[in-house]
Amino acid sequence: MTLVAAACLLWAFSVPGFSFFLVFGAVPVLGLAGLAWVVWVVMFGVQRRRWSWSFLPAPIIVALALALLVAGVPLQARWAMSRSAFEQAVATLPAGEDWYLVPAPSTIGSYRIIAAYHVPGGVVFQEANGNLFDDAGFAYLPEGPTPALENGSFESPVFQHLGGAWYRWTASW
């Protein structure tokens, strides 16, 4: 149970924002698993005064998952596997005017894309599971993010550099 919940939590943070529903499901399961682990250790370890190596896997799994989350490994690993597919998609996109929807594959690498837009200085891809209340995705911006990217419907974009001309972003629409 702990391993599955930790894997769900890691997957939830492998998108540009985070997958709210996966987090909402995984955190309570991890909490229940932690409570069950404490009861198990107290009942079989403390009361019977017997140490068992079987007490270790659950806290190790949780500590490892938290360390990976803090280091940003889930997004970086998934992005690394998908980056070449995004680069290929950018190379095949037709030219267009800024802020107009351009046709893009619904899946690029391991990400589900719901929209792509030409923007001043590059292309913005909106990812399907990036955020619940705002939008999130990836941006190809060879010159980096500029103030021209914020308009009336793409409000307060926040960019995080992923390497090269690539950024992850979150924003209000």
Rank of each mutant, 00 (worst) to 15 (best):
87 E>T: 08
142 P>W: 10
114 I>M: 13
89 A>D: 05
85 A>M: 03
93 L>A: 12
90 V>S: 05
95 A>T: 11
140 Y>H: 13
86 F>K: 01
128 A>D: 11
101 L>Y: 14
93 L>K: 07
117 Y>S: 04
115 A>N: 12
118 H>Q: 13
114 I>R: 14
116 A>N: 08
108 I>W: 00
98 D>R: 09
134 D>K: 10
132 L>R: 15
122 G>Q: 09
100 Y>S: 12
135 D>F: 14
120 P>I: 05
92 T>W: 08
136 A>L: 02
100 Y>W: 11
110 S>R: 12
86 F>Y: 10
121 G>A: 03
103 P>K: 00
137 G>A: 03
118 H>F: 07
125 F>Y: 09
126 Q>M: 12
137 G>L: 04
126 Q>S: 13
90 V>C: 04
128 A>T: 04
120 P>E: 07
91 A>I: 04
130 G>L: 01
87 E>V: 00
105 P>I: 05
112 R>T: 12
131 N>D: 15
98 D>W: 07
111 Y>P: 00
93 L>W: 07
116 A>W: 01
112 R>D: 15
108 I>P: 03
104 A>N: 03
89 A>I: 06
93 L>M: 10
96 G>C: 05
103 P>L: 06
87 E>A: 09
137 G>D: 06
84 S>T: 13
105 P>C: 08
106 S>G: 15
118 H>N: 14
106 S>T: 14
138 F>T: 03
111 Y>L: 02
115 A>H: 09
130 G>Y: 02
129 N>E: 15
101 L>K: 13
119 V>D: 03
113 I>S: 06
111 Y>Q: 09
103 P>C: 00
97 E>T: 06
85 A>H: 08
98 D>V: 03
133 F>D: 15
109 G>Q: 10
123 V>M: 07
113 I>M: 11
116 A>G: 05
108 I>C: 01
93 L>E: 02
138 F>E: 08
112 R>G: 11
111 Y>V: 02
85 A>C: 09
142 P>N: 08
97 E>S: 14
120 P>W: 07
132 L>W: 14
139 A>N: 08
110 S>G: 13
97 E>M: 12
127 E>F: 02
109 G>W: 02
97 E>P: 02
140 Y>I: 02
103 P>F: 03
99 W>I: 06
124 V>S: 12
105 P>S: 11
138 F>Y: 10
108 I>K: 03
107 T>E: 15
89 A>W: 00
96 G>F: 09
98 D>F: 05
138 F>N: 06
119 V>G: 06
128 A>E: 13
128 A>H: 08
118 H>R: 15
110 S>A: 13
117 Y>M: 09
130 G>Q: 04
98 D>Y: 02
99 W>V: 05
94 P>D: 03
105 P>F: 06
107 T>V: 15
140 Y>Q: 05
109 G>I: 10
84 S>P: 07
101 L>F: 11
124 V>L: 15
92 T>S: 15
108 I>Q: 01
138 F>P: 00
122 G>L: 04
135 D>Q: 12
122 G>T: 04
123 V>C: 07
97 E>H: 11
136 A>Q: 04
139 A>R: 08
135 D>N: 11
106 S>M: 10
106 S>K: 12
120 P>A: 07
89 A>S: 11
139 A>Y: 04
101 L>Q: 14
